[in-house]
Amino acid sequence: MDWEDAGMTPTTAPVTIRTDRLVLRTYRPGDHQDLLAFYGRSDVCRYLFNAPWSPEDAREAVQTRISRRDLAAGALALVVEYDGQVVGSVSAWLVDEPERTAETERTAELGWAFSPEFGGRGFATEAVTALLGYVFATPRLHRVIAQMDARNESSARLAQRIGMRREGHFRQNAWIKNEWTDTLVFATLRSEWPSAA
């Protein structure tokens, strides 16, 4: 895996993570069309907070995510490409911790969405594993979590495949899209992550 930046300040530098088959990069204007191809699908958004995107939703989301370039500053959002085609998106953000001081180690949360058109080829596993390695390179990061609708079995399997441990199953704790839903919580520690230990 190879991490690059353009030598600018952390908040403005584009991030690129390269794996054997994928490129994970920060958002650019114009990404909305590629993302709309899967975020506009009801099956992809079934277990997400948002409804399927409209073209305007896609433009607004990309505009927001363009600024998410530095996890240390709060959030990182990346587009996942295979052979020049957008196959998914991954993100990481710092979790608010009320008793945190400047010296306290932090917790980050991961999120992801992938196009079903590219399913079954291991792209999600490869991309989220690369993201997790990059996230654990962030100074003072102690723990990474992922939360998902308990019915989202493919995301739960992905979290387990990349080495995250299931820590909780909260029953009907979230009111989403006019129904109560269960939430699964997965986590891993820096000390448990092979490249960070």
Rank of each mutant, 00 (worst) to 15 (best):
Q147W: 07
Y27M: 10
R166G: 04
Y47P: 08
G30E: 05
C45K: 01
T19I: 04
A6H: 10
Y39I: 00
F38V: 00
L158H: 03
L110W: 03
G74D: 05
Y47G: 03
T125P: 04
V87K: 02
G119M: 01
F118Q: 06
R68Q: 15
D96A: 15
P98H: 05
H32G: 08
L94T: 05
G120E: 05
G120S: 04
A174D: 13
M148N: 09
R21L: 07
E4W: 04
Q147G: 12
A13T: 12
Y82A: 15
A51R: 14
V86K: 03
Y134F: 15
P29Q: 12
E167D: 15
L76T: 02
L22F: 06
Y82V: 13
Q85A: 14
E179K: 10
V15F: 00
T104M: 11
R59G: 12
T9I: 04
H32E: 15
R151Y: 09
D34E: 14
V44L: 07
W175Q: 10
E56S: 08
L158V: 03
V79A: 13
R161E: 07
E105A: 13
G133L: 03
R100K: 13
T138D: 04
T26C: 15
F123P: 04
A73W: 04
N152Y: 08
S91P: 07
T101I: 11
E192V: 03
R143A: 05
A156R: 07
R18I: 06
A61S: 15
G168L: 05
L35W: 03
A72G: 11
N173F: 00
P116F: 12
W180C: 02
F114A: 03
H169C: 10
D5I: 08
G40E: 06
L78W: 07
E105R: 11
W53M: 02
E56H: 03
D57A: 01
R59H: 11
A6V: 00
Q85C: 10
R171N: 11
G7Y: 11
G30L: 01
